[in-house]
Computed example of a mutant assay.
Amino acid sequence: MQKEATYQSINTYDTLNELTSKTKNVWLVFHGIGYLSRYFIRLFESLDKEENYIIAPQAPSKYYKGEDYRRVGASWLTKENTKTETQNVLNYIDAVVAAENIPNTTRFVILGYSQGVSIASRWIASRRKNCHAIVMISGGFPQELSKDDFTFMSTDTKVTHILGEKDPYFEIEKVNAEKERVKQIIPQIEFRTHSGGHELDPKTLVNVL
């Protein structure tokens, strides 16, 4: 018989730059599978340090990568006990955002890369979180989400999906079908491509705000 137990847990997260009166944009960024947040956040070092403050939550499930058991990666979710694990992750994100006390005077940007797209979009939908911009990079949109989950969203929210033309994880037929589905859910979404593969290239973040 499988049972459940409730307990408290502690997890880390990383930040980049300083949150000051000069900060214009606060980014909540979700890494993909295999990353640790402290390495993922380095991808945003090219952004203006005075104007941008980056918050990178850490996926809770860690594992060793490769046969030498030296490098560590992390995953947000698997197909095992997904519903409960999703709620655990969303509660953790709530705690991170509450701890950062993000001022209303800044623009709030939510970005998901690869597996992080599913976490970012689920958190936005479940918490009905309005933000200034949503950026989805090289990731799929959760199948359970529908247009009803985003009726709260302002039409002023800028939503961008970016995909590499050489991304080995996506077939063009499936991409086109997915575009149609997501467009029905979030009509203002803009789809972009870059010449690379399954990657987050900081240069592609131009004009996403």
Results as ranks from 00 to 15, higher is better:
Gly140Thr: 12
Ser126Lys: 13
Arg122Met: 06
Lys129Asn: 06
Gln87Met: 12
Val159Ile: 08
Val89Ser: 01
Asp149Asn: 01
Pro60Glu: 02
Trp76Phe: 06
Gln58His: 10
Asn101Ser: 12
Gly139Leu: 11
Pro187Gln: 14
Ala133Cys: 04
Thr157Lys: 14
Glu85Arg: 10
Gly116Arg: 01
Ile110Glu: 05
Ser121Cys: 10
His161Leu: 14
Gly140Ile: 08
Lys83Phe: 10
Thr105Ala: 02
Leu77Cys: 07
Ile110Met: 06
Arg181Asn: 10
Asn104His: 06
Met153Thr: 03
Thr151Phe: 06
Asn101Ala: 10
Glu173Val: 11
Gly66Met: 03
Val182Asp: 14
Thr157Arg: 07
Gly164Val: 02
Val175Tyr: 07
Tyr63Arg: 13
Glu80Met: 11
Tyr69Gly: 01
Ile189Tyr: 04
Ile172Arg: 11
Ser126Ala: 09
Gln58Glu: 13
Lys62Leu: 07
Thr78Met: 04
Ile134Ser: 04
Ala98Gln: 12
Ile189Cys: 04
Glu180Leu: 14
Asn91Val: 09
Thr78Ala: 05
Ala95Gly: 04
Tyr64Gln: 05
Thr82Ala: 12
Val96Asp: 11
Ile110Cys: 09
Glu80Gln: 12
Asp167Pro: 13
Asn130Ser: 07
Lys83Pro: 12
Ile93Gly: 01
Ser126Leu: 01
Val97Pro: 06
Leu145Thr: 13
Tyr92Asp: 07
Ile185Arg: 08
Lys179Tyr: 11
Glu171Arg: 15
His132Val: 03
Tyr64Asn: 03
Asn91Glu: 11
Asn88Cys: 11
Arg128Asp: 08
Glu144Arg: 05
